[in-house]
Simulated assay, not measured.
Amino acid sequence: MPPLMLVCITIALHFFPESGGLCSDDNTTNIAPIFLVTFGSGSATFSSATPANFSFTTTYQQAFTIPIEDGYFAFTNAIPNVNTVWHTGALDHTPNDIDGYMFLANADPNPGQFYRGTVNNLCIGERYEFSAYLTNLVGPFGLAKPSVIFQIRTSTSDNTLIGQLDTGEIPEYSTMTWTNHVTIDFRFSFLRANITRFWYSSEV
């Protein structure tokens, strides 16, 4: 049985008084997330939306119904009833999110990039935090566990690596449990003022 994983991604901005002044006060005092992906909602079990609707790319193929094979993903509002080891019927991470879709990836034995996106208009000298909620949708049956590597890189031609975190094996639970496995703090103080975006990628 291949490992499966669900992912919900949030990027949050934090302001610190000692940060540089290349952004207006209105930009630097906002502590709410500056970028949030929730994958929408709907009554159909599988969403017809594609990565382009959420401005990201992936090396995985999209499934719009069961089964979801190795190296495939789907946007679904509940874990489908296709295997006795899955947490069938479990919902997404967001509280009170009726019919909210989540990103379900069937991890390929050969690592791939399941999510790559760009965030624009970041401020030089400010501190940012990248975080992601992940879960293993397989119950405690002693099966292979997924792991994810997150990277944050500049959008310059050399794609300089400025932050990375490896989740290690994502554990199984008797009930599906979402955990904030990833928190990466980073600054842009070393970049030119006209570099105001970054891309991040993850492999599973």
Score class of each variant (00 low, 15 high):
T38K: 06
S41Y: 07
S41T: 08
G42S: 09
T45M: 13
S47D: 01
P51E: 10
P51I: 06
P51D: 07
A52R: 05
A52Q: 13
A52N: 12
N53K: 08
N53A: 15
N53T: 12
F54I: 04
S55K: 12
S55M: 11
T57P: 00
T58A: 03
T58M: 03
T59S: 13
T59C: 04
Y60A: 04
Q61I: 11
Q62V: 10
Q62C: 10
Q62F: 11
F64P: 00
T65C: 05
T65E: 10
T65V: 07
G71K: 01
Y72E: 15
F75D: 01
F75H: 00
T76W: 01
A78S: 11
I79K: 00
V82S: 15
V82P: 00
N83R: 09
T84K: 12
W86A: 09
H87F: 03
H87S: 05
G89M: 04
L91T: 12
D92S: 13
H93N: 15
T94I: 13
I98V: 15
I98A: 15
D99K: 05
D99V: 04
D99R: 05
Y101L: 07
Y101K: 04
M102A: 06
L104E: 01
L104Y: 03
N106V: 05
N106C: 14
N106I: 04
P111Y: 05
P111E: 13
Q113V: 15
F114S: 01
G117P: 01
T118M: 14
T118L: 14
T118I: 13
V119K: 03
V119T: 13
V119P: 00
N121V: 03
L122R: 03
L122W: 03
L122S: 02
C123E: 01
C123N: 02
G125S: 14
G125F: 08
E126D: 14
E126Q: 15
E126T: 10
R127T: 15
F130V: 08
L134I: 10
L134V: 06
G139Y: 05
P140V: 12
F141D: 10
A144N: 08
K145C: 04
P146R: 02
S147T: 06
I149Q: 07
I149E: 07
I149F: 02
I152T: 06
R153D: 03
T154L: 15
S155E: 14
